[in-house]
Write a protein that binds this DNA or RNA. Structure first.
Lengths: 223, 223
DNA sequence: AACGTAAGGATTGTTGAACAATTCGACAAG
DNA sequence: CTTGTCGAATTGTTCAACAATCCTTACGTT
């Protein structure tokens, strides 16, 4: 059928130089290569990537809208350094997006994705790979929001988690923060699979309360 | 005290030409001056506004990220024309953002904002000003999400509603769509003031079911 | 009539250079 | 120690040019 072709349309779209530049910068920011607070020089980066300043500036605009960069007029762009209020607001939003997600009926396919994230996190933890635990944990929560089946909510969650990674990069002890939540993810998965949505929602609320408390306590954006 | 000055910091921030251009274009799109589907010529608009193509392109990027413009490589930017699937997804997101909002304890101040929106809508309806009813209705729902007290959720809702206005501009009969919901807003406000959050949530769910059904039924993006 | 091809004009994508506007640090003066 | 001033460095914006791509039209083939 012709209709099936629509599924491949995404592969068809190429991308402009500005978009590819934005992708590169986004990766670097998320990976922590550009630490929060650092200023990104137009001249240095445009020369380093071999693109013109104009093209680079288009890329900067894109990332500014994702809250990964902070654009200050006549002073340049800086890797965003979230404030404590930002952290608190991020968790407010997580409660809304993820809380509503677990209350939905979960499809078999969506649960599979969530289960894979749980297993990846456990495997990474067994090997002491705390970076890996972090990314698996993020995939877990992204998959939770995926229960909505909504492109816009997925995108909003993606941005939210990218911003949250900035917060983690400011902290020095990722293990202490990720480790306690592996077991809870497993527990949450079991509740979802059993269809006990209200208990899952309660479990998630506890998760957020504890995570936000820990995070805000340990977070010192300027020191 | 010197600390009080921090409150005025927002007034201090100027804006670049690109941002002001984006503001102008956003207003025009939301007001319907640029109808959905229309192509925006770089040459014509840059000349019309007296800015360079590069600056205009920075503005285009900003609006593309807000889903108001559709940027197609080597073909130009078009005012976004939401599909039926988009409409459905917008309502999925509204259910999440607004549904969670009404379940929160509402402050006196937030309820005042909501009440004003209800009264404005009723006043506009009495005068047959259906455009005014539409904007008041939008303010009503923006104020609902305001119950969260979350800058990010406010911003997400702002974008969502801007996109929804695109949908309304495609339809030809705004009265038929806005009129039935004035009374329901008043009812919802009463439930919130009485602190009956679960009933308010149920009322809102009905609202969304009916609105989405009506909208999708009447929405024909290509003709 | 349907399809492939070619040519052309028009529009966007990207670059590089130039200049204005602004910031920031250093240093001198009070 | 505070304040004023200067200048280097950086960003904001424009402009002109060229490359890349798309769209239309026309033409020829089957």
């Amino acid at each position: 059928m012709v209709a099936d072709l629509a599924r491949h349309r995404s592969r068809l779209s190429r991308s402009s130089t500005a978009e590819r530049v934005a992708d590169i910068l986004r990766d670097n920011i998320i990976e922590g290569a550009f630490p929060p607070g650092e200023r990104l020089s137009e001249e240095a980066i445009s020369e380093g990537l071999g693109v013109s300043r104009n093209t680079l500036r288009e890329a900067f605009r894109l990332l500014g809208h994702e809250r990964l960069l902070d654009h200050r007029l006549n002073r340049g762009v800086f890797v965003r350094l979230p404030s404590v209020e930002d952290v608190s607001d991020l968790y407010t939003m997580r409660r809304v997006l993820e809380g509503a997600a677990v209350r939905r009926a979960a499809s078999r396919q969506a649960l599979t994705l969530i289960g894979e994230a749980v297993r990846d996190a456990e495997r990474a933890a067994a090997q002491g790979d705390w970076q890996g635990v972090g990314t698996a944990n993020i995939r877990f929560h992204q998959a939770l929001v995926g229960l909505h089946g909504s492109p816009r909510l997925d995108e909003a969650m993606r941005q939210l988690l990218a911003e949250l990674r900035l917060v983690f990069h400011v902290m020095d002890n990722p293990r202490a923060f990720h480790e306690p939540f592996i077991g809870r993810n497993r527990e949450l998965l079991a509740l979802l699979e059993a269809g006990r949505t209200e208990e899952a929602a309660a479990c998630l609320d506890d998760y957020f309360d504890e995570a936000e408390r820990l995070l805000i306590h340990a977070y010192q954006p300027n020191g």
